[in-house]
Design a protein around this nucleic acid. Sequence first.
DNA 1: CCTACCGATCGGTAGG
DNA 2: CCTACCGATCGGTAGG
Lengths: 199, 199
Amino acid sequence: MDHPKQVSPRSHNRRRQLLDAAAHLFTSSGYAGTSIRDIATMVGMLPGSIYYHFKSKEELLLAVHEEGVSNIFQSVRTALEQSDDDPWSRLEAACRAHLNALCSSSHYAMIVTPEFLRGFEGDLRAQIIAQRDRYEDMFRKLIDDLPLADDVNPNYLRLGLLGSLNWVTTWYRPGTDTLDNIAVALVNMFRRGLDPRQT
Amino acid sequence: MDHPKQVSPRSHNRRRQLLDAAAHLFTSSGYAGTSIRDIATMVGMLPGSIYYHFKSKEELLLAVHEEGVSNIFQSVRTALEQSDDDPWSRLEAACRAHLNALCSSSHYAMIVTPEFLRGFEGDLRAQIIAQRDRYEDMFRKLIDDLPLADDVNPNYLRLGLLGSLNWVTTWYRPGTDTLDNIAVALVNMFRRGLDPRQT
DNA sequence: CCTACCGATCGGTAGG
DNA sequence: CCTACCGATCGGTAGG
C-alpha cells in the first residue's frame, strides 16, 4: 500500500485536500485574509510543504478558481442535458443548477464573487476573468435562444438574472426555502414580463 | 492660517482625507489587502499617525462603512423627495439613485459588496450588518407599497432587484450606457410582469 | 502628528 | 513533505 510507486496518487490526494481547504478559507476569509499557514494547518501540513504542490499562493488561487469554475460548469451542463427543449425551461434548469452549485457545501462559491477580482492585476486578473468568461458564455447562448421583444436588451437580462442569483449567496440561510424554489422564483420574475406566451 | 486654535478643523480635514483614502483602497484591494501603511502613504502621513485619528484598523473600517451607508442613504432619500407618488416610479427613482451612488467616483461602493462581511466575526460583523439593515429597510417599504399579485414574494423581489443592481458594479464600464438607463432597464424587467397595469 | 520601535506574522526557499 | 530559516511587512504603541 505504501510502495514508492504510489507516490504519485498519494500526492494527488494531498493536492485535492489543499484545493478544498484553500477554497474553504478563501471563501470565508478572502484571499488576502488567508495565509499559507492557515491552509497548511487545515490539512495537517507544515507551511513550507505547500510549495511542493504549488509554486506560489497565486498559483494555488488560480487552481482553486479553475476547479470551482469547472465544477459549476459541469453541474449546469448536466442539468441542461436532462432538460426539455423549451428555451425558458432550459434557462430555468441552468439557473437552478447554478444556484445549487454556488451555495453547496463544497466551498467553491468564490468563482462568482467579485471579491476575487479585487486587488488582482495583470496576468493573474486576466486569467481569472478568462476562466469565468467561458462559463458565462453558456448563459449568453441560453438567453439568445429566448423569444424576446425588441425592446428587451438580452445583455441586461443575462446580467440582471445572474446578478440576482449570485446575490443569493449573501443572504441565503438554509432552512427557510429550498434553493430550487428560490431559483425558480427569481427566473419567473423575469420570465413573467418577458415571455410572450405568458406561461 | 496655522494658529494653534485651528488644530481642531484641521484635524477634521485630515480625518476626512483618511476616510476617503481608506474607502478607495478598501474598495480596490479589500480590507485585508490594504495596510495601514498604504492608507498613510496616500494621505502623506506616517503609519503611526493614523492611530491619532482612529483607535484601530477595525474602527477605521467601521467609520468608512458608516460614511458610505449614510452617503447612499441620503442620495436615495433626496431622489424619493423629488419623485411623484406612483409606487413604481418611486422604486425606480430609488434604484437610479442607488446605482449612481454605488458606481460614483467617491469610493464608498463597498457598503454593499458582500466581501465586507467576509472574514469578520462577532461585534464588528454585527455592527456592519446593523448599518446596512437600516438602509435596506427603505427598499422593503418601497416594495410593500407596490400592488403585487398574491403569488409574488415581495422579499424575493427586493433581494432579486437589489442583487441585479449591486451586481452592476462587477461589470459596468463607463462609456457604454448611462447608469440611469441601466437602472431603468433592470427595474423594468421586474416591473413588466409584476405591475398589473402593464405600463 | 512624528520618531523610533515592538513582537508577530507573512510568503517563500535551500537542503535534505 | 519536514527542518530550519530568510527578509519583508504587518498592526500597533510609548513618548514627545
